[in-house]
Computed example of a mutant assay.
Amino acid sequence: MTTIDNAAFDTMLAGRPLMAIFRGFGVERSLALAEQAWSLGIDVVELPIQSEADLEALAAVAEAGRAAGRMVGAGTVVSLRHVAQAAEAGAAFTVSPGFDERVARASFEAGLPPLPGVATATEVQAAMSIGLTWLKAFPAALLGPAWFGAMAGPFPGARFVATGGMDATNAGAFLARGVRTVAVGAALEDPEQLPALAALLAR
Rank of each mutant, 00 (worst) to 15 (best):
A146T: 10
A8F: 04
A119V: 11
A141W: 06
Q125P: 11
A86V: 05
V83K: 00
D5A: 00
A126Q: 14
E192F: 09
L13G: 03
G98C: 03
T120E: 09
I21T: 09
A140G: 05
A34T: 02
M128W: 10
P17T: 08
T181I: 04
A68H: 14
P156A: 15
L115R: 00
D54P: 14
G69M: 05
L143H: 12
T94K: 10
L115Q: 00
P114S: 00
E56S: 09
T181K: 02
G41R: 06
E46C: 01
A37H: 02
S107Q: 04
V161T: 02
M151G: 11
S39G: 14
Q193T: 12
E46A: 02
A126G: 01
N6L: 02
F160K: 02
Q193N: 09
A62S: 11
E56P: 11
P156Q: 11
A187V: 08
E56I: 01
S79G: 01
A199P: 01
L13N: 01
A92M: 04
A53K: 13
L33P: 08
A64L: 10
R29G: 07
P139Q: 01
A87L: 07
L142K: 13
I42V: 14
D167Y: 07
A91E: 10
A186R: 15
M151R: 12
G75M: 00
I21F: 05
A110D: 04
T11R: 14
A57W: 04
P97R: 13
E35V: 07
A187E: 08
A187K: 12
A60Q: 11
T11Y: 03
S96W: 07
Q50P: 01
G164S: 12
V72E: 02
A104Y: 01
